[in-house]
Design a binder for these strands. Structure first.
Lengths: 213, 213
DNA sequence: ACCTGAACACCGTTCAAGT
DNA sequence: ACCTGAACACCGTTCAAGT
């Protein structure tokens, strides 16, 4: 009969998908749950932590997806020695982006929660683990994962915002295909950079064992 | 005696620096100008376009700075053939980041305005011009400049947010030096990627003349 | 334990009316 | 031309009081 935290978070994701972040208000959320706004504060401490929970919910789907099909990637080729690194990063990036795109304003929600560090799921930590497998130092993992996360979040936020402005008729053209292409090609710049670290021996794959993740 | 648009925008930047984006409200801004909130709507159509004007004000300082000292950069070395490209990108990126850091929440303000496209100054267009000088195709310039802008904005936003959370005592440690290092090294990943395009002939410096900027 | 009612201190925006 | 007064339709958050 009575609500719990999970109900509130799931309803919040629902409001997000239907009305967007701007209209995700405590009052509207309460209304959808058949309750008064004040009641929500029994389940969550405030709106910011609710958004962090929503962010976790969005990112959780990334983990779930990668657990279901751990090696399914048609774009995998495999000839250079560093193709494992490159493919690992590409796969993670694609899944991260897909998880964000699955929900309206997903990029903005996750981005707003990231620096606060309230979320249980940290996307930067996830790529960090990938980089660790290829011998990257802790400093390299930190700035490398940050660069990747910032690029992806920034790209998705711009894509989602522009797509919504397009639906509102505010902005003329929006090409989803071009967005995906820009994303893939932009990502490749970072992949090249990371591969460079690996190639010049700055990151040493032979030291993988003693890498503290 | 009476206000004009410039007064309103400059006061808005002032409120931003002193109280942050969250407290940059029409009412507070009006109060600072000795006027009622409704009066502001004579000078700006709404808050969103006011933020776009604030964003322009912030980015304008980038242009001014580069015009004052066009070649002053102590980190410049100059030995490889592509060092011009790399240095050009590094210099622009450093100035862009510096302009954002000069104002509280500068990153967030510019980022929120960017996809709307209301701003007069487009940072992506500025690097695009740099890339054009080195023969990058229009597609390469687009995804390259987007990747750079997203990386820089994302990095600065996280840096500024964390720095403020630190001041509020919410988060324990904040190291400005480490932030700058992560920025420089992260940027280098993208620079390497761009240099790669230039090296493998995908971007052709000999075609610089007919590049439509 | 969970929720209501009602308030507090705000928002952005509009617009007749004043000067 | 520029601004006030006053309203409209909202916000997030708190908290005594109810069940």
């Amino acid at each position: 009969m009575s609500l719990n935290r999970q109900d509130v978070v799931r309803a919040a994701v629902d409001v997000l998908d239907r009305y967007g972040l701007e209209d995700l208000t405590m009052r509207r959320l309460a209304g959808l749950l058949g309750v008064k706004a004040g009641a929500l504060y029994w389940h969550v401490t405030n709106k910011q932590t609710l958004l962090a929970l929503v962010s976790d919910e969005i990112l959780q789907e990334l983990d779930d997806a990668s657990r279901l099909r751990p090696d399914a990637d048609p774009t995998a080729v495999g000839s250079q020695p560093d193709t494992g690194l490159a493919e690992g990063v590409r796969r993670w990036a694609g899944q991260f982006r897909a998880a964000l795109l699955r929900h309206r304003d997903g990029g903005e929600v996750v981005a707003s929660t990231l620096p606060v560090g309230l979320g249980r799921v940290d996307p930067a930590a996830e790529v960090s683990a990938v980089l660790a497998r290829y011998g990257f130092s802790s400093h390299q993992r930190r700035y490398g994962s940050r660069a990747l996360v910032h690029f992806i979040l920034g790209h998705v936020i711009e894509e989602q915002t522009r797509s919504q402005l397009h639906e509102l008729g505010v902005v003329a053209q929006f090409d989803g295909r071009a967005e995906e292409e820009d994303f893939t090609d932009g990502l490749e710049l970072l992949v090249t950079g990371l591969r460079g670290l690996s190639a010049d021996g700055t990151a040493d794959p032979s030291r993988v064992e003693n890498a503290e993740i």
